[in-house]
């Protein structure tokens, strides 16, 4: 069950690609700018579908968000050396596949702090290396792989559009309660979602 509120006690249901649902606190979810743009003010009727990502990935991402709820406001990327023991463990216990899934999910959910730390970890793989050493560290994709990547991004854009439509639909249902303000909210949300969708498609 979800409801429009700003209290950290409020729980939201998240739906993964397997169709499984689990709870996430409002405070943790609010670290996602994508969530803020879609659901924060209007609430969500039923589980929020982040069905492009599996349960393990989403749980990992929101584990990070739950942990950083009580940290000070995010003030830009930290150097790797400044990461806490908890942060380091969080990253170190992931294998490469999970790390990439977390980056993708964090990027889609627009969780600034987590995305920034992931970027820093990737940059660290390249730092201090010369071209020959970098070639050993990174996989250079073939033309087919690049084409496949483009298809995945198109699919994600379509998924984002679907989520946006669902959010707008939910917003419409609340119109009867507070007709005029909600209509304005729906329009605002639609505008935000359209912008988000367009920027995603342009990527």
């Amino acid at each position: 069950m979800t409801s429009p509120a700003s209290s950290s006690e409020v729980k939201y249901l998240i739906e993964s690609s397997e169709g499984n649902t689990f709870d996430v606190s409002g405070a943790a979810l609010r670290q996602s700018n994508t969530f803020n743009a879609m659901f924060l003010n209007i609430g969500a009727d039923g589980p929020i579908p982040f069905t492009d990502y599996n349960e393990a990935t989403l749980k990992k991402v929101f584990e990070y968000c739950e942990h950083s709820v009580n940290e000070e406001n995010y003030s830009g990327p930290k150097h790797q050396d400044d990461l806490s023991k908890w942060d380091l463990n969080f990253f170190n216990e992931m294998d490469q596949k999970m790390f990439i899934d977390v980056i993708n999910a964090s990027n889609f959910l627009d969780i600034e702090r987590l995305t920034s730390y992931c970027c820093e970890r990737i940059a660290r793989m390249l730092r201090g290396k010369n071209t020959q050493e970098m070639i050993k560290v990174i996989t250079l994709p073939t033309a087919e792989e690049l084409e496949a990547k483009q298809k995945v991004e198109e699919k994600k854009a379509a998924a984002a559009k679907k989520v946006a439509e669902k959010a707008a639909e939910t917003a419409e249902k609340t119109e009867t309660l507070e007709e005029l303000p909600v209509q304005q909210l729906v329009q605002t949300t639609r505008n935000k979602l359209t912008r988000k969708y367009l920027s995603f498609s342009n990527e």
């Binding site: 490469q96 980056i103 793989m125 390249l126 730092r127 071209t131 050993k136 250079l140 994709p141």
Partner: peptide, 30 residues
Amino acid sequence: PFPLLRLPRLVLGEVFKSLSIGEKIQLSFC
């Protein structure tokens, strides 16, 4: 090996920006 170019575009951009001039040039020669 890490699939760098399979990262989302914005993430890739952040990674590039955080590298030094020399590292960017070395990477560009890959």
